[in-house]
């Protein structure tokens, strides 16, 4: 029964969409479902000379992963150091608290000035957007490590490196993973927004803006759907890994 309930609302929305689209009869405001579906079922077709939907998605995904990975490999070590060593925390915290509330897109003019138009500036925006959530979650994870686990390791004579790798990292992993999952969502928002702004000629965000300029509403909606699907797929992937790797979490503290 619950399974069926879940698809009730989507069906109503699709139905309402189609009815309104037919009633309006204006594809520049709301295209019909068939028009959007036509774009979606041919993802390799070149659209408006700005590449195919698949190419655009691939390029956006590539940018997301690049920025996300760069942020991960820098933010996780920093977060561990901040969570473990008071000195590092005191040193870095004020700067992080100051920079963190600035919206990633506010960095775009600086990014363009520093890295010129292209891959680097978009990756930089994604980096800025994902870096802070990863740092903060890592710090919280490290600080939340059960004191008894640390003392147990100390009693058995573990050195600092062993405490970090054998206790702190595995114990904080679920919280760090949550930070990564949240960040990946932010990375998607960043990439699409950055691609919509001046300075890009490719990617899903660019395709959507180009379609707007040419009045191709069905392409805009198709692009948005693709963004949603990829985002959902990545999040599901993270959840699956989370369920498999961190079964112990919450059941035993």
């Amino acid at each position: 029964m619950r399974k069926y309930l879940k698809i009730v609302l989507p069906i109503i929305i699709l139905f309402a969409w189609e009815v309104i689209a037919i009633a309006l009869n204006n594809p520049f405001i709301l295209p019909r479902i068939e028009a959007v579906a036509a774009v979606l079922i041919e993802p390799t077709r070149n659209i408006l000379g700005s590449g195919s939907l698949l190419e655009g998605a691939g390029l956006s995904l590539y940018r997301v992963l690049l920025g996300f990975l760069t942020a991960s490999v820098t933010a996780i070590p920093l977060g561990i150091l901040m969570g473990r060593y008071r000195v590092v925390q005191d040193l870095a915290d004020s700067v992080i608290q100051l920079l963190r509330p600035i919206p990633p897109l506010a960095w775009l003019p600086l990014a363009l000035a520093w890295f010129k138009i292209g891959l680097t500036s978009i990756v930089f925006i994604i980096f800025i957007g994902t870096f802070f959530p990863i740092v903060l979650n890592t710090v919280a994870g490290v600080k939340g490590v059960n004191q008894t686990w640390l003392e147990t390791a100390t009693v058995y004579g573990a050195n600092e490196r062993q405490i970090l790798t054998k206790v702190i990292l595995p114990a904080a992993a679920p919280t760090i993973w949550t930070g990564l999952r949240v960040s990946l969502g932010i990375a998607w928002q960043c990439v699409v927004a950055a691609e919509m702004l001046p300075g890009t000629t490719s990617g899903l965000g660019y395709m959507i803006m180009a379609a707007y300029n040419l009045g191709q509403m069905q392409v805009i909606i198709a692009g948005m759907i693709v963004i949603g699907i990829i985002s959902l797929a990545l999040d599901t992937l993270f959840r699956v890994v989370e369920r498999r790797m961190f079964v112990w979490q919450g059941r035993y503290q």
């Binding site: 003392e151 147990t152 114990a171 961190f246 112990w248 035993y252």
Partner: peptide, 12 residues
């Protein structure tokens, strides 16, 4: 070697 009251095992 010390044995604590509880929660000293590594759950992972």
């Amino acid at each position: 070697a010390m044995i604590f009251q509880e929660y000293s095992l590594y759950p992972w």
